[in-house]
Amino acid sequence: MSALPNKKDKFVVVGSQADHAEKINKPSLSFWKEAWLHFKKNKLAMFGALLLIVLITMAAIGPHIVKYDYATNDLMNSNQPPSKEHWFGTDDLGRDVFARTWEGARISLFIGIAAALIDLAIGIIWGGIAGYKGGRVDEIMMRIADILYGIPNLLMIIILMVVLGQGLGTMILAMTITGWIGMARIVRGQVLQLKTQEFVLASRTLGADSRRILFKHLIPNSMGPILVTLTLTIPTAIFTEAFLSFLGLGLNPPLASWGTMASDGLPALEYFPWRLFFPATFICLTIFAFNVIGDGLRDALDPRLRK
């Protein structure tokens, strides 16, 4: 064996290094860290996230960086086109459209996020209990949801507006009264699927109560679809608000939301297009941002869709 000169001393038995073999060299990655790595690779979703950050930042600081107030009338300067003074122009009462746009962003985003969070809370509890308890409880709870779902949405909203009066609270209530059902169905489906998994059985044999099983095992493992649904509920709520405001069922002036601004701007479309253009553009951008983030999350959070 000329290939191996002077290697006699290498041929001694040293045995295994089993302890070494148990070692895990890879860095520890939690589910969320790994999901983030996947999300980061999705350029469109990252663009959406960036866009959303810009929108939220502007909603926070936007009204303060111009010297105009969103509610102050200045009839001398009504319907000004965008200029150095008024970056997005002014409306028919001379209010600064830039300030109003970001004030509107606050309201639109607030409505969207509030509605989505309320949906989330009710949906998780309702769907979680229905799915976990199963049988009769499930049957009754889901039938109630079906009945609520059957009531025409617009009708319900109009009735609520008439009874409770127009306003932010009514708007959110109107949206969540049936909005949670979608979330409840998602959660129930997940829970039904997960509750027969062996890790849930293991927890049951250890003596865990329903609460622990639901909140330690079932819900955390449903977070993927829940989060995706959540991010897709927000733009729907924003759009619904805009739509209702557009119909005149929304907020009262001088409160501005993108919906009311668009509604005000429509009659003046031919002469003062910026009054519609800005709020409409930002509605689109926001909805776009949430949608691509939702899609990105869906891919990142579902191991089956990961490459």
Partner: peptide, 15 residues
């Protein structure tokens, strides 16, 4: 296979 091999030789860890 050396780390799991009870008969591993010194050279197994090297070449």
């Amino acid at each position: 296979f050396a780390p799991r091999n009870p008969y591993a030789l010194q050279i197994d860890y090297e070449e």
